[in-house]
Amino acid sequence: MNEIFMNVGFWVLGITAVVASLFMVTRENPVHSALWMLLTFFAVAGIFIQLDAEYIAAIQVMVYAGAILVLYMFVVMLLNPKSTGFIKVPAKVILGSVVALVLFLQIVMTLMGTGVIKSAQMSGMNLPEGLSNVKAFGAVMFTQYIVPFEVASILLLVAMIGAIVIAKKD
């Protein structure tokens, strides 16, 4: 039962993510692109839940869908550039698609070449009794990775200051 549920979930979420991202890339209007991206983010959040990463799924929704995407929307609205025309240079589109396809095939071939991954069963996280995902995550993050965590905070601070300085009107 659970297994069927997992399978169905994976396919639904995966196809949603792929289709949404395809639409995102191909929409002429940036606002539409942003909305399709929102859908992709939600689908990816669902996949995170499937992979026993509830906390990540939560911040995926909050940070990506809530913060970053809103930031994009703001900029798009703010600049409101006139339409740049979508497919003016077909050669470029063909070239880009071909390169991306080759890259994809190469990745897949590389994956297929390594035997372990093909048959690796996803059994889900086996957390110790009474330890939820968030607790386990916090335990690792604030012990082993405390220094990178602090560095990341400094990075965000710097980015904030930098963004203000750059975007400031002189």
Binding site: Q106, I107, M109, T110, G113, T114
Partner: peptide, 8 residues
């Protein structure tokens, strides 16, 4: 690069 080093 990937073709050079990883493709089996």
């Amino acid at each position: 690069l990937v073709a050079l080093f990883y493709t089996v």
